[in-house]
């Protein structure tokens, strides 16, 4: 016990401490940036209609909150395949394709990763969502409320108003890039189909 305590207290040379801590403190944000940039560069693109509102985050500043008409609330009747065995947080997969007006449409919802990708189909994975079995019914009733980590768009201080105004007329759309693993990344926010902000890779 005492030996373990002493071992745990062994001091690291400050220069080694600098190297170790530096690797983690630089590496973690660096890895996050590369991960996100890769989705922007290589991900498949799909466009959704959205309705933003304008709050503020203490650490990250002003943002518009985005709700997606097609994917934020998904009809339970689209659920296909096996249901979750237990109540608990689950990540669901959406199978998407482009609709007639160029906007993304949900074709199916499933628990398991979809296989056999038809041409034009994109698979999108949701954040963990609360799954509770309603009674004994095997079917999924009502709406599934889902999020994908693309529900915020950060803007320079005080510039959320333009997007907000366009929201009232339902003219805002968002182009989203989706990686092979199903992670989503906002690529452009558009009003009347024209890009308001184009996201650079870095």
């Amino acid at each position: 016990m005492r030996a373990l305590g002493q071992l745990l207290r062994r001091e690291i040379h400050p220069v080694l401490a600098l190297l170790l801590a530096g690797c983690v403190l630089i590496g973690l944000p660096g890895w996050m940036i590369l991960d996100r940039a890769a989705i922007l560069r290589n991900g498949a693109e799909i466009v959704f209609k959205t309705a933003p509102v304008d709050p503020r985050d203490l650490m990250r500043g002003d943002y518009v909150r985005l709700r997606y008409e097609e994917i934020s609330n998904v009809d339970g009747s689209l659920f296909k395949g096996e249901l979750p065995a237990h109540d608990g947080p689950v990540r669901l997969w959406l199978t998407l394709h482009d609709g007639e007006d160029g906007l993304g449409v949900v074709k199916a919802v499933s628990l398991n990763t979809p296989v056999n990708r038809a041409p034009g189909e994109i698979f999108l994975r949701s954040n963990p969502t609360r799954w509770t079995r309603s009674g004994s019914s095997e079917a999924v009733a009502g709406q599934l409320s889902l999020s994908f980590g693309i529900e915020r768009y950060y803007v320079p201080e005080g510039e959320g108003l333009e997007i907000e105004a366009a929201r009232n007329q339902q003219r805002t759309t968002v182009a989203v890039r989706i990686s092979d693993k199903g992670d989503a990344q906002i690529a452009r926010i558009m009003i009347d189909g024209k890009a308001l902000y184009e996201e650079p890779l870095y």
Partner: peptide, 11 residues
């Protein structure tokens, strides 16, 4: 936080 802001992460 900056990375989250750059890539509009939420949730």
């Amino acid at each position: 936080a900056l990375v989250g802001q750059m890539y509009h992460l939420s949730g």
